[in-house]
Design a protein around this nucleic acid. Structure first.
Lengths: 342, 342
DNA sequence: TTGAAAGCGCTAACAT
DNA sequence: ATGTTAGCGCTTTCAA
């Protein structure tokens, strides 16, 4: 039984010495490569275990030219999107021994450059760029790097690979849910028309509902949802029986506006949100049925793509739109008949 | 003008060759150490610049035994706390060339071990542990590592160094704000008594207001805020004129409950929250005056402490409580006289 | 089956 | 002022 060395991490040399073999034999034994006597191998393994040997990744990387390290650069200050995405990325990578540097740039160019340079110096095997919207360019140019770049919740140039939520699919899911609940006339209240996500969702809504439907574009805020309800109430006799909101925050404003007027959700009207931002959607009255963008899955896919890229395996180029999912809570009417009818 | 090499990162060797000096001279020139002829230095610098030379951090680290890398391990799945804190950490570290690995464990022990091992293998210079509450032990034991550990929004063992928000100070700020608005009787509605943060804030409240004040412990939810208002209304004749809520979510429930009963905020009663979680506090009607825990500052301090520790400079041991700040919005009455009076 | 030696990219003694 | 050499911890030919 060899005594573990505490003050200094032990090295392969320590193992080799303790096992009375050469460096290369120790290395081969531990990595299971080359011809090593089974008995010798056992001994090396045992001793390595006993003294708590762990290979120095820095030394390995220097030689192998793969650092088992990637960088995640994000625009987000807030964390709403970044943490689920990046933990999704890490989840698939950690099993392959790769760790991720997180660089929050807050959209600051200088900071972004600084981080990027640090990442490059540390020889990251690749970079994943994440943003909070799809139609804004990264604060730094990632197109000329000689390591792979993957975009998650951001759209890279066409020859690159990007993963984004399928807004149209999410919208379809929302409308289908409303229709299944028996809604005949569905209104769409959403964020600024300047946002691609808002336009995509609105287009899907128009496709499915009424090509000429007036979409109510506004802000991504509760206040707007609230104001929109006032507008609707002022402008028309009869309320629609379903409202598809572009975000949970808008939906919350809608819900409040409706309640202010004594209109019951979901009895009088069904409301569905978008985002599944739980701090909002779980706390509304009633709790909000909404669309989840599956951020973690976006992270998974981005991580997987990165893994393949670093191994020179082929990956899909261009923008991959990942399906959303429906989260049922209580703001959409349950039609008892609907289940049976299929 | 030397042509940049694109397929391979250029090395010091390339610089030395191009400048027609030895490796060590090139190294000395670039690092500004040793005796180097001014003219030679210029030339080396210029050439390095031209061919875009950047030193390989891996090679440097191997030699210097400092990887300029730390790990941030977090319990948080959600990101509400982690992103502000970790971007605070990075902000102070990036200028010193250190990058941070982010490891989200979701409280999963296996995952935490995996991440920790990967970090150690990569020779991180230190680890910052972050949690979502102060009174829960990390999923892994960080006390026996031979690298520095700092706790941020988490309380490490007494000989370690931790940075947490000063809950008592935050509570004081809240109460002082209410008092300055003229409130005479302040009620405290907060989260579960099992949470240290809730107890700390409640204790400060009792200290300042009425030692025997009944604190309403409950959940960290809007629903609880709402329910609490119903309870209060049912139990007493006269409403208090100020409510200090343990979280923004609770405050939001309180606000809604009050509105349901036609009680106006801030005219009839002032309400203050805790957290400054903007998605909640900016969207309430009226927008919520609340306490900010200065998460980014916690990150700064943790990062700074880490920097010192890695240089063997002394740092404060034990738990450092960092002041909170007041964010004024519109849920607390403005007393025109209050300003003058001081 | 095992070991000696070279080298990843860099820095730091030590010669010159 | 500059160059030569050794070595950080490891993997990988290539000989033995």
């Amino acid at each position: 039984m060899v005594k573990p060395i505490l003050h200094r991490r032990c090295t392969l040399r320590d193992v080799a010495k303790a096992a009375d073999v050469s460096l290369s034999t120790a290395s081969n034994a531990l990595n299971g490569v080359g011809r090593v006597n089974a008995e010798t191998r056992e001994r090396v393994l045992r001793i390595a275990q006993e003294i708590g040997f762990r290979p120095n990744a820095l030394a390995r990387s220097l030689l192998s030219r793969r650092s088992l390290t990637i960088g995640i650069i994000t625009d987000d200050t807030y964390g709403r999107l970044t943490l689920p995405i990046s933990s999704g990325v890490s989840e698939v990578l950690v099993d392959h021994g790769v760790s991720a540097f997180l660089c929050a740039t807050s959209g600051d160019k200088r900071l972004a450059e600084l981080h990027l340079q640090a990442l490059l110096d540390k020889q990251v095997d690749g970079i994943i760029f994440t943003a909070t919207r799809l139609d804004v360019d990264p604060p730094i140019d990632l197109t000329a790097l000689n390591i792979p770049v993957v975009y998650a919740f951001a759209a890279g140039p066409s020859h690159s690979t990007s993963f984004v939520p399928d807004d149209a699919h999410g919208a379809m899911l929302a409308i289908a849910c409303l229709e299944a609940a028996g809604c005949r006339e569905i209104l769409h209240i959403t964020g600024p028309e300047g946002w691609l996500a808002a336009r995509n969702r609105a287009a899907a809504y128009r496709d499915r509902c009424r090509p000429a439907s007036p979409v109510m574009f506004g802000e991504w805020s509760e206040e707007w949802g609230h104001a929109a309800i006032e507008q609707v109430l002022a402008a028309r006799e009869k309320l629609p029986d379903g409202i598809f909101c572009g975000s949970d925050e808008i939906a919350r404003g809608v819900l409040d506006g409706l309640r202010d007027h004594g209109i019951s959700v979901p009895d009088d009207i069904s409301v569905i949100g978008f985002d599944n931002w739980e701090v909002v959607s779980r706390q509304t009255r009633p709790p909000l049925t909404t669309i989840d963008m599956e951020l973690k899955e976006i992270g998974h896919r981005a991580g997987l793509a990165m893994l393949r890229l670093t191994r020179n395996e082929p990956v899909d180029k261009g923008i991959t739109r990942l399906p959303c999912s429906l989260v049922r809570r209580e703001s959409v009417a349950k039609r008892p008949g609907a289940e049976q009818r299929r």
